[in-house]
């Protein structure tokens, strides 16, 4: 009974941590200047945010089957979010979305066909 109470409380803490991370990532969408920085900021919600909500739900309703489901869910979520943000960022770069002014080095510009005339 005692253990259940502790796990319930810990689960709540993890869920609220996840909610906080997702809210901050949403704020980042408005506050950051360009596509690539925004993609990085959203990475925190897709990674830590969702993972810690799933972990919190697992702690509140623990069983070995749920542990397996939670592990699968976290791994699938991490993989798909990584591939998704790479695809978005790369297609953004190919579609002429320039990095913000504060970006101090850009090595990828050398590989562009139009790098000479479009600057």
């Amino acid at each position: 009974m005692e253990l259940q109470g502790i796990m319930h409380g810990a689960g709540l803490v993890f869920i609220f941590l996840g909610i906080f991370t997702i809210i901050v990532a949403g704020l980042g969408l408005f506050r950051l200047p360009d596509l690539y920085l925004r993609a990085s900021a959203v990475g925190t919600s897709a990674g830590l945010g969702v993972a810690s909500i799933v972990l919190g739900a697992l702690l509140m309703d623990f069983s070995w089957l749920n542990l397996l489901k939670a592990l699968l869910a976290i791994i699938a979520q991490l993989l798909t979010s990584a591939v998704g943000s790479m695809a978005i960022a790369r297609s953004g770069y190919l579609n002429n979305s320039r990095p913000a002014e504060i970006t101090h080095t850009d090595d990828l510009i050398k590989t562009r066909r139009d790098s000479a005339d479009s600057r």
Partner: peptide, 13 residues
């Protein structure tokens, strides 16, 4: 994937 997964770094190509 691991680089992209770490917030703050992002593999472009």
């Amino acid at each position: 994937c691991l680089i992209t997964l770490t917030p703050g770094t992002l593999t472009l190509s």
